[in-house]
């Protein structure tokens, strides 16, 4: 029983983080068909912002809000300076641009900040543990679960109940038709990048909270996680991304508990092989997205 609870908390907290990471990637992919390699760097930006405002003496929540805001701004900014000018050219050109931009941001951090880890301010709760029914678990796991529940709820409400959300879902299936009804393309695209930045910023703070420091490559693992989760769940389905995140967390946690130390090292190889197999079996992922989409 204790073990079951432990396992559940592990899967839910990891899965919550994974689901948010995947959602932030897939919201942009769904609308622009752009696999954004620079997504992980939004997490990095949030981390370094937190580091830079660390000495300001502001309340922590304000600092965290500033960090999330910077991630949002960076998301919209990358779209304007890098993706928009190449979007009409080819899918491959946009992909390479996003890969180049990812490298650009990481190396800018190396160059202007430091290759060494930097400490970020965190509230005391992040390092405390709590006992629930005999299971000792870090408080930050519970914070992650709570944040995931709230964000997923807000996100679902936004996409189902607001005009903007419905317009975004429409644009994901048929961008041109949505524009012919008067939905401005720029608003939709910038909103997608803003939501992507918001999710990356919040999940970034939670992610960095596990280790307490930020390095230039901090976004690499979340990016990989988001890739796997979206591929498992369905690259064009928002629900699929969430499902994929939790499924991946379940697989990872199970492997953590069952694989021997020797084999555990190959965990990424196992999960990525799984990705390849799933794509072969169902190139669209487990959940099919809306009917064929068009690029602008």
């Amino acid at each position: 029983m204790t073990f079951a609870l432990q396992f559940l908390i592990d899967v839910l907290s990891l899965g919550g983080a994974y689901a948010l990471m995947a959602l932030g990637l897939v919201i942009v992919y769904g609308i622009l068909k752009l696999v954004n390699f620079a997504y992980g760097e939004l997490i990095m930006v949030a981390g370094y912002t937190l580091f830079l405002v660390g000495g300001s003496g502001l309340p922590w929540l304000v600092m965290a809000a500033v960090a999330v805001l910077m991630a949002i701004v960076t998301g919209i900014f990358t779209d304007y300076v890098a993706f928009r000018p190449v979007r009409a050219k080819s899918v491959t050109a946009v992909l390479i641009t996003s890969f180049a931009f990812s490298t650009l941001l990481q190396n800018a951090a190396l160059l202007f900040i430091s290759p060494r880890p930097r400490n970020v301010p965190l509230p005391a709760a992040f390092s405390q543990t709590v006992e629930i029914a005999g299971v000792i678990t870090p408080v930050r796991n519970l914070i992650t679960i709570a944040a995931a529940v709230v964000l997923l709820g807000v996100f679902a409400f936004l996409m189902r109940r607001t005009v903007l959300g419905i317009a975004m879902r429409a644009a994901a299936t048929n961008f041109t038709m949505a524009r012919m009804l008067g939905v401005p393309a720029n608003l939709i695209i910038s909103s997608a990048f803003a939501i992507s930045g918001l999710l990356a910023g919040i999940v970034g703070i939670l992610w960095i909270g596990r280790i307490g420091t930020v390095v230039p490559g901090i976004g690499n693992e979340p990016l990989l996680v988001a890739f796997i989760a979206t591929v498992i769940g369905g690259m064009r389905s928002l629900g699929g991304a969430v499902l994929g995140g939790f499924l991946l967390a379940f697989i990872d946690t199970t492997l953590n508990y069952t694989l021997s130390q020797e084999l555990l090292k190959f965990r990424d190889a196992f999960t990525f092989s799984l990705v390849i197999l799933i794509l072969l079996w169902r190139p669209e992922g487990l959940l099919k997205g809306p009917a064929t989409g068009q690029r602008t």
């Binding site: 419905i166 879902r169 299936t173």
Partner: peptide
């Protein structure tokens, strides 16, 4: 306003939601 040859409804949105988007500019 345009009605395209390919009869582009948004298949995942409800009829109401489709109509609502039609009135996007006067929301």
């Amino acid at each position: 306003a345009t009605v395209t040859e390919t009869r582009d409804v948004f298949p995942d949105l409800t009829v109401s939601e489709n109509l609502m988007l039609g009135s996007y500019i006067r929301r």
